[in-house]
């Protein structure tokens, strides 16, 4: 444990010294991707989403989340509420299938669709690819919650990237993204994501919780928490349609 802390602290100091002055944005974005990318292993966690909509009771969703970044795959199996128990998502690359245990059928869906009618999108559960998809248009120094940050405006490199423009608030000392804003092609703010706390899992960083605020549907927000994170190797069979079918038997 001590060794891990020393290694982490060392890497933060190195990162800070490397990026504190004039950032090389290509390297910085690559480093941000790497920090959350489990390229050599698997990742799993229990996720809880609490969605708030004006005039409605809060919706609480619990699910089991499995990710294998080297193959660009993830699986989500719904645990709660009971009516949605057993529903599942399988994402491979850009393809995503939704499994409904009642009809026992898979429906082709999109990473851009909202997750279970919340403010989260299915793509929020895939690995980050900022370096590949974006270039930094501008940046400014600033402070967020007492921490020194860069506020960087990223624009999509091509028309295939779902979010055309992002603004990231990146901590200078450890390169963790504390806040994000997503803008439409027309430049309108669509949603804001705040990530107040990260948790370290085998040298990688995943949000402990994140708050997504919808800027279009005013008053709608979703809080996602990631609990019991694990990097235990997962069987290959988890990332298959058969798994989603079998988990319901």
């Amino acid at each position: 444990m001590k060794k891990t802390i020393i290694v982490l602290t060392g890497s933060f100091i190195l990162a800070a010294s490397a990026f504190a002055q004039a950032p090389d944005w290509n390297r910085t974005l690559g480093r941000i991707d790497e920090m959350g990318d489990f390229e050599n292993g698997d990742f799993s966690a229990e996720i809880t989403l609490v969605s708030q909509k004006p005039g409605e009771d809060d919706t609480v969703i619990q699910a089991r989340y499995f990710r294998r970044d080297r193959d660009d795959k993830f699986v989500i199996v719904m645990l709660k509420p009971d009516v949605q128990r057993g529903q599942g998502y399988l994402s491979i690359g850009d393809d995503l299938w939704f499994y409904d245990p009642e009809s026992r059928k898979f429906a082709f869906s999109s990473l851009k669709d909202s997750f279970q009618d919340s403010d989260a999108q299915n793509s929020d559960f895939s690995s980050s690819s900022l370096r590949e998809d974006y270039s930094v248009e501008s940046y400014a120094d600033g402070k967020l919650g007492g921490a020194d940050i860069w506020a960087a405006v990223l624009v999509a490199k091509d028309k295939g990237v779902a979010v055309p423009k992002r603004k990231l608030w990146i901590r200078k000392d450890n390169l963790l993204v504390m806040k994000e804003e997503h803008y439409s092609l027309s430049g309108r703010l669509m949603r804001t994501i705040a990530i107040p706390k990260y948790q370290s899992v085998s040298g990688k960083f995943v949000p402990a919780s994140m708050l997504i605020v919808d800027a279009i549907k005013v008053g709608e927000r979703t809080q996602i928490t990631f609990a019991s994170p694990s990097v235990e190797k997962l069987p290959d069979s988890v990332f298959t349609k058969t798994y989603l079918e079998r988990v319901n038997q």
């Binding site: 028309k159 779902a162 979010v163 092609l185």
Partner: peptide, 15 residues
């Protein structure tokens, strides 16, 4: 009215 949609290339847009 605000309209949220995707472009023909799949980018999110709002009008």
């Amino acid at each position: 009215l605000i309209v949220q949609l995707s472009t023909i290339h799949g980018q999110q847009n709002v009008g």
